[in-house]
């Protein structure tokens, strides 16, 4: 098992170094603060949903490791323009993929480039790093305000 080919791939390193949508959204309609008490990673999600229930804009801020930052960055890129229901399907597939319960087969998943995080399952201590942003997204969609990884 190599950390470079399975975990720290170029795409992930690039999103860590140049995170996309790394900002706050003024006048956001949904938001949540996610927190992993085990490692202290913090992430804030801001979203703007339109009346049709589509994620018009999404951004994140906070501090964390490369995996959590890259995961948040790639998540924002991939859920922008999606409906709430589509985003929740992606969360479900992503969560199951990193915990090893879902094998994304070509053409039979909704994760797009996010399958790059599949290697995380080989690093059990890092699964929460990859899924923190997604849990925070769901929390923001449900408007619960705050979520803690247990």
């Amino acid at each position: 098992m190599s950390y470079q080919s399975d975990l720290y791939q170029q795409v992930i390193l690039d999103h860590n170094k140049n995170p996309r949508n790394f900002r706050e959204i003024e006048g956001h309609s949904h938001s949540c603060d996610g927190h992993n008490p085990l490692c202290g990673d913090k992430i804030h999600i801001h979203m703007k949903l339109n009346d049709g229930g589509t994620i018009e804009d999404i951004a994140f801020s906070g501090s964390g490791c490369a995996i959590s930052k890259a995961s948040a960055s790639m998540m924002t890129v991939n859920v922008k323009g999606k409906s709430v229901d589509e985003a929740k399907v992606m969360f479900d597939e992503f969560h199951k993929m990193v915990t090893g319960e879902f094998e994304p087969q070509p053409g039979k998943h909704h994760l797009g480039k996010l399958t790059i995080f599949q290697g995380v399952r080989e690093f059990p201590s890092r699964i929460k790093c990859a899924s923190l942003a997604w849990h925070t997204l769901v929390c923001a969609l449900d408007k619960t305000g705050e979520t803690t990884m247990e």
Partner: peptide, 26 residues
């Protein structure tokens, strides 16, 4: 260059055990 958790994961593959985190002292 890197967050402590990334440091830990990478050097763990070299057999090196150090701790990364807040050390129960936030």
């Amino acid at each position: 260059a890197a967050h402590p958790h990334d440091v830990i994961t990478i050097i763990d593959r070299e057999g090196i055990a150090v701790r990364g985190g807040h050390h129960c002292a936030q």
